[in-house]
Design a protein around this nucleic acid. Structure first.
Ligand SMILES: NC(=O)c1ccc[n+]([C@@H]2O[C@H](COP(=O)([O-])OP(=O)(O)OC[C@H]3O[C@@H](n4cnc5c(N)ncnc54)[C@H](O)[C@@H]3O)[C@@H](O)[C@H]2O)c1
Ligand SMILES: NC(=O)c1ccc[n+]([C@@H]2O[C@H](COP(=O)([O-])OP(=O)(O)OC[C@H]3O[C@@H](n4cnc5c(N)ncnc54)[C@H](O)[C@@H]3O)[C@@H](O)[C@H]2O)c1
Lengths: 228, 228
DNA sequence: GAGACAATGTGCACGTGTTCACAAGGTGAC
DNA sequence: GTCACCTTGTGAACACGTGCACATTGTCTC
């Protein structure tokens, strides 16, 4: 029976598939043959019913009374996620963050090899980092074409991010991961994801503050800035 | 009139407040006195009705017919997010990623100063990075107490992450930002956020694959791994 | 071959989030 | 002081996500 895949998979499910994928990989390494939705849920930090519903969007790959075959399910998830092939990545901006990303082995091992590094600092262009020659921004189009780059990672200051995003799109990249703390706009058809660490910290800060408030604390500052 | 703040603010709104905060800061720098929900929405990449509803959870801070006073609204959002004070951060794991984070000026400027660095590599402990002496894992409790650390950032390999999370909680940290690609469990009352770059890439990969499928492409691999 | 068993797959109800559309209500012009 | 105008604040409908509960169905035992 062919996998359904005609069905649309909800965004919330898509966001969890990579977690299941990683957990299943660990189970496979440990030699587990099958896993129940309950165990998979426990290891993934979610509800068992959610796991079953999520997996049912991929197809009916479980065995009632037994669970899911680890190898088979893992293959199906990888297939759904498009991880049956490699997706070369270009990192734009070889600063603190760009270097850390380029050094990181976890990307290549998960099928996202760092194919190219790009920077607009003339002092950096032409030098090597982790064996990759840093190219100029003007070469972006060639780099993308020649190395068949699928994904662009933006690791430059916010001020230049929109321009680089435009250049990436022009060069034919249709998936962008942006680390610059700014809202980017891209044409329809281009996929954009934002990772904003300051936002994460601020959300933590909110919850911490709110927890304190529940305990009866009052923030005097709230009154100290009257309008006008 | 006191800010309501008795109301609970939806999670989805909390996640957007940092964006509004950043955009309003930019508007303030440009000297804007007021802003309409429509303009703020445009700059934040969201719907105008959503902006108004989000802001209404903080209180009735707009002026009908005019918009929102930038200074005043910014103050209220900062207050809601708990950004009226500094939240010292400890980074555990001074490797590729930990170093990049420690070097990053954006945290301190947003009220999250890197107060301490911790690593368990004896070769690193005692050395300095960006003027901060790296401390041993065993000193974590003292570091958290003495420097009044509010937030712990985990930047070590997945295998040790749960143990470090436990240590952070024991040391009194109640907000954790985890970069290790693993599911952590923490007690109630501890706030945990996960940043997983491989997950982000895999979500991009999913959408790219799906886009291609819609155009009629068929992945032959889907059939090539029959069960047993 | 039949029956007990165990875990899946899903209908359903509930909660959360989004968006529209418009009444409510300040502001500024005259 | 009145009126026209403009943007907020929110009710209501809709879409999406979650989780319970259980019928369904494949497996294994005897
Ligand atoms: N370092 C971190 O830990 C961290 C954390 C959160 C967010 N960020 C964000 O990531 C981005 C990069 O941070 P960073 O610390 O690596 O900065 P950085 O200043 O260390 O490095 C930026 C690099 O980008 C290059 N660059 C600048 N403009 C460019 C352009 N238009 N085209 C190509 N290259 C360009 C610079 O030459 C430099 O090499 C920033 O937006 C920052 O806010 C970084
Ligand atoms: N580097 C990246 O760009 C990147 C990207 C995505 C995710 N990550 C994740 O971030 C984490 C760190 O990545 P990295 O590239 O910095 O790794 P790394 O190996 O460069 O550095 C890890 C550091 O943590 C220290 N360490 C290890 N175990 C420790 C423990 N129990 N207590 C204290 N310190 C300990 C090591 O001594 C080392 O200094 C990993 O989980 C990785 O998967 C990194």
């Amino acid at each position: 029976m062919a996998p359904p895949s005609g069905r649309t998979i909800p965004d919330a499910t898509v966001a969890r598939l990579p977690i299941y994928q990683r957990v299943l990989g660990e189970l496979q390494d440990r030699g587990a043959a099958t896993v129940s939705s309950e165990d998979l849920a426990e290891l993934s930090g979610v509800n068992a019913a959610k796991v079953r519903k999520d997996l049912s969007f991929l197809g009916s790959y479980g065995i009632r009374g037994v669970g899911y075959e680890v190898d088979y399910l893992l293959f199906q998830i990888r297939n759904a996620l498009g991880l049956t092939q490699q997706w070369p990545v270009v990192i734009v901006g070889v600063g603190n963050l760009g270097r850390a990303l380029a050094d990181y082995a976890g990307f290549t091992s998960r099928g996202f090899p760092v194919a190219a590094l790009v920077d607009d600092d003339p002092a950096k262009v032409g030098t090597e980092h982790v064996g990759i020659v840093i190219r100029a921004l003007s070469e972006l189009r060639d780099v993308v074409r020649d190395l068949d780059v699928a994904i662009g990672v933006i690791a430059i200051p916010a001020s230049g991010a929109q321009r680089v995003a435009d250049l990436l799109v022009e060069a034919g990249v249709s998936s962008i991961l942006n680390f610059a703390p700014t809202v980017l706009s891209v044409p329809d058809g281009v996929n954009l994801r934002q990772v904003d660490l300051a936002v994460e910290l601020q959300i933590l800060s909110f919850h911490r503050r709110h927890r304190n408030r529940e305990r009866g604390a009052v923030d005097p500052a709230a009154e100290s800035n009257p309008r006008r």
